[in-house]
Amino acid sequence: MIETVVKEFFNRIFQKGKELRDSLQDPYEQLTSFVWIYDREDPDYFTGYRMFFEIMAIASMDEGYREVFHQWVNGWVELLEASIEKGIKSGDFKVKDAKEAAKTISAVYQGVASRWFLDPDNHSDEWAKETVKNLIKFIVSKD
């Protein structure tokens, strides 16, 4: 039952991210549109992050939850990959492998989120958003 609740919650978050991404035309803006996850005023902030960290902890010991975590990661990678492919086709991005770049950017979002959520006194919303934007720019501009 918990697994179903988690999946439904994350599906709702993915849908929100997809709608925001799709409302934008520029591929870089699409990739950075997910910085909305670094908003402590967002109504899903507290529940979503607690759920995410709980799933990670359980997944470290339980194969079934490892699959839930895998699905969560793949959901983000797919959202990012579409924008990267668009940027490659338009010539805006120099990166060659959209999937690998999406995995890297997904890891950046996750790593920044961990520090931002767990150490808010030293990692503000603005720090998180600017860090992600700068790293994405660096990643997609590499050959």
Rank of each mutant, 00 (worst) to 15 (best):
R115G: 04
D42N: 11
Y49V: 00
A101F: 03
H123D: 01
Y38L: 03
H70N: 13
A101L: 00
D22V: 11
E41Y: 01
F52Q: 04
R12L: 14
V95F: 00
D39C: 01
D97Y: 00
F117P: 04
Y65G: 09
K99D: 01
I37R: 08
N134A: 13
Y28E: 02
K96N: 10
E8V: 02
R115P: 01
Y109G: 06
I84W: 00
I58D: 12
K7S: 10
G75S: 09
Y65I: 05
T47S: 10
Q25R: 14
K7L: 06
E78R: 12
G48P: 07
F69W: 10
E67A: 12
F69Y: 12
V132P: 05
V35S: 01
K94L: 03
D44G: 05
E8Y: 06
T131A: 08
Y45R: 00
Q15H: 13
N134G: 07
F138E: 14
Q71P: 02
S83P: 08
K96I: 05
W76R: 14
M56Q: 12
S60L: 13
G48Y: 06
I37P: 04
W116P: 00
Q30P: 03
P43W: 04
F138Y: 14
E100K: 12
A128W: 01
F14A: 09
G111I: 00
E54W: 13
Q30R: 15
K129M: 02
E130M: 10
E29P: 04
Y109W: 03
F117A: 05
K89V: 08
F9V: 08
I58F: 04
E126P: 04
S114P: 01
S141F: 07
W72L: 15
T47Y: 09
V5R: 15
Y28Q: 08
V6S: 02
V95Q: 02
Y45E: 03
R50C: 03
K103A: 04
E54S: 14
K16E: 12
A107S: 13
I55F: 02
E81F: 05
F117I: 04
G91N: 07
F93C: 09
Q15D: 13
Y45G: 08
